[in-house]
Structures are given as structure tokens and as C-alpha cells.
């Protein structure tokens, strides 16, 4: 059984939380539920209302895009990835389905808790903004690359 301390260690490895105060990480770990999924179980489905964000502790999660009845695995998340935060911040439906690929252990942070934690610890907000910005930059770069590839 993992204790809060173990969970804090795991959280610390996640870039998003790396520089956070250990006691605050502990609170984050405490606030979240550790959830276990069997192979093929869904964390959430595309189009659902988002009520929580997930941090993968161990295992692999497939990000599946469903368009017109066909499923395409667009990405795989491994240890320490944050997923599902977009719905929490923006109140938009889930943009993709996330499914456990093999046994998966994750921390689930309820929407309310995550927003409360951000209010309580502004530095966490900064971290998340930075993470999101990085992702945006990466997506923009990817998009430019794929456009370039398409032109050729």
C-alpha cells in the first residue's frame, strides 16, 4: 500500500509539481483519490462533462479520438502525465477518450479540489500555466511542421 509519502515522491517527479513545497504536495496527494483501472477501462469518454483531472502514477493510458464512429489512438500517456485538466479549467466537454492500456494506477483530483488548491497555492497556478503554455508551443510547432510537410 502506498502512503502519502510515496505519493508525494511520485508527484515530485512530475515536472508540473517538481518545485512545489513538499507539504503542499502532500495536501495535493491527500486531496486526490488513488484510483485503479483494469485494462480497457475508461478514465473518461470524449464529450463527457469533465469533473476531475488525472495524474498517471503507473501504467499506460491511451488517448483515443473518436470521429465518425472510428477510434484512433492519437497519443499514449505514461508515468506522471497530467490528463483531463482542460475540461476542469475551461468547463468544456472532454476532447478525447482516455482508456487504460493494461493496469493503470492514477490520482484523481476532483474539479473543485484542483481549483481550490490553485487558489490556495498561486505557485501551482504558475506551474500549470507554464505547462499549458509549453504544450501550446509544442502543438503550434507540430502544426507548423505538419503544414510544412503537407505543402511538400
Amino acid at each position: 500500500m502506498s502512503t502519502l509519502k510515496d505519493e508525494v515522491e511520485v508527484l515530485r517527479k512530475i515536472p508540473l509539481f517538481a518545485a512545489m513545497d513538499p507539504s503542499k504536495l502532500k495536501l495535493l496527494a491527500y486531496a486526490s483519490d488513488k484510483v485503479e483501472y483494469e485494462d480497457g477501462q475508461l478514465l473518461f469518454r470524449q464529450g463527457d462533462v469533465g469533473d476531475s483531472a488525472f495524474i498517471v502514477l503507473s501504467g499506460v493510458a491511451d488517448i483515443v479520438s473518436e470521429t465518425g464512429g472510428t477510434e484512433v489512438v492519437v497519443a499514449q500517456l505514461r508515468d506522471h502525465a497530467l490528463v483531463g485538466e482542460m475540461s476542469v479549467f475551461c468547463d468544456i466537454p472532454r476532447s478525447a477518450t482516455v482508456r487504460a492500456n493494461g493496469r493503470l494506477v492514477a490520482l484523481r483530483i476532483g474539479k473543485g479540489y484542483l481549483l481550490d488548491l490553485i487558489k490556495e497555492f498561486p505557485e501551482l497556478a504558475t506551474r500549470i500555466i507554464r505547462e499549458l503554455a509549453f504544450r501550446l508551443a509544442k502543438t503550434t510547432a507540430d502544426l507548423a511542421a505538419s503544414e510544412r510537410a503537407a505543402r511538400h
Binding site: 502519502l4 502532500k26 491527500y30 486531496a31 488548491l117 490556495e120
Partner: peptide, 20 residues
């Protein structure tokens, strides 16, 4: 001690007390 460590720094009106 663990409880104090977790919640000791929070303000009395912190939402954490209500939710977490």
C-alpha cells in the same frame, strides 16, 4: 502531526476544510 502538517498552514476560512 500528519494532520497538522497537512492543514496547519491553512487559513480558517480556507475552502480546503470544506472539501478535502
Amino acid at each position: 502531526e500528519a494532520r497538522i502538517e497537512l492543514f496547519g498552514d491553512l487559513a480558517p476560512d480556507s475552502k480546503i476544510f470544506e472539501t478535502v
